[in-house]
Simulated assay, not measured.
Amino acid sequence: MRGREQGEEREPRRGRPRSEAAERAIIEAVVRLLEEGEPLAGLSIERIARTAGVGKATIYRRWRDKEELFVDVLRDIEPPEPALSGTSGLADILIILETLRRRGLAQRDSTLLHSVLSQMKSHPKLWNAYHATVIEPRRVAMRAAVRRAVAAGELRDDIDVELMTELITSPMLVRTIHRRDAPLEDDLSERIVRTLLEGLRPRETATDAVGGTES
């Protein structure tokens, strides 16, 4: 399946037969129904099974409930998760930021993806499942990358890791979630990291360096 977290493996379910063809048919059935205008709340396991040409038991052998199935469907239509080095902190930070940027572009370009995400937020159980299995692992990956950058001397070691993580990701989240009209340029990830590393203070001039001008 697309969209699995780096290093994350889904815990195998007892008795679940591996049939990629059946799994693919079920996910494509859900996507087709959503594209036809069916709301998430109106999709039943019976309707999904009938559209996919499988029995309900085939679905329940793979997913415990609709929420778990819908999370996998969303993972499938989102951009895939990145492959992180696991060694270079700053390089992995850039990869994660770039993934957030591409996901923002995908939501702008895909009416289906935007619609599904919007509907999910009005279904607490589904949103909580998505948050726990998709969003939180991304945050864990970013915190781990920040720690690697600190350990390598690429970032300061006297600032809380959680705060640094939020400082790094917030500009991208603002543009992708809160300001949907904001530009998402190709070099945005690099500019965010470069600006944070350089800081926001004005650059020191030659006059500043020798103590300023006389009054």
Rank of each mutant, 00 (worst) to 15 (best):
R4T: 10
R4Y: 15
E5D: 13
Q6K: 10
E8R: 15
P12K: 13
R14P: 14
R16N: 13
R18V: 13
E23F: 09
R24I: 01
R24E: 13
A25D: 09
A25N: 09
I26G: 10
E28C: 03
V30P: 06
R32I: 00
L34Y: 04
E35W: 02
P39V: 06
L40C: 09
A41R: 14
G42R: 01
L43V: 00
S44P: 09
E46W: 09
R47H: 01
A49H: 11
A52K: 01
V54W: 08
V54D: 10
G55V: 13
I59P: 11
I59V: 12
Y60D: 07
R61W: 06
R61T: 11
K66P: 02
E68M: 06
L69R: 04
R75G: 07
P82L: 11
L84G: 06
S85N: 15
T87A: 15
L90P: 08
L94F: 05
I96G: 01
L97H: 07
T99Y: 11
R102H: 11
R103E: 14
Q107F: 06
R108G: 05
S110C: 08
S110K: 04
L112Q: 06
H114R: 15
K121M: 10
T133D: 08
P137S: 08
V140H: 05
A141V: 01
A144R: 04
V146N: 00
R148V: 06
R148E: 08
G153C: 04
R156M: 08
L167D: 04
S170K: 13
M172C: 04
M172P: 03
T176I: 12
I177N: 09
A182K: 00
P183Y: 03
P183F: 03
L184F: 04
D186W: 04
S189E: 11
L197V: 02
E198M: 10
G199W: 08
L200S: 12
R201D: 14
P202F: 00
E204V: 11
T205K: 07
T205R: 08
T205E: 05
G211F: 07
G211C: 10
G211S: 08
G212R: 10
T213A: 12
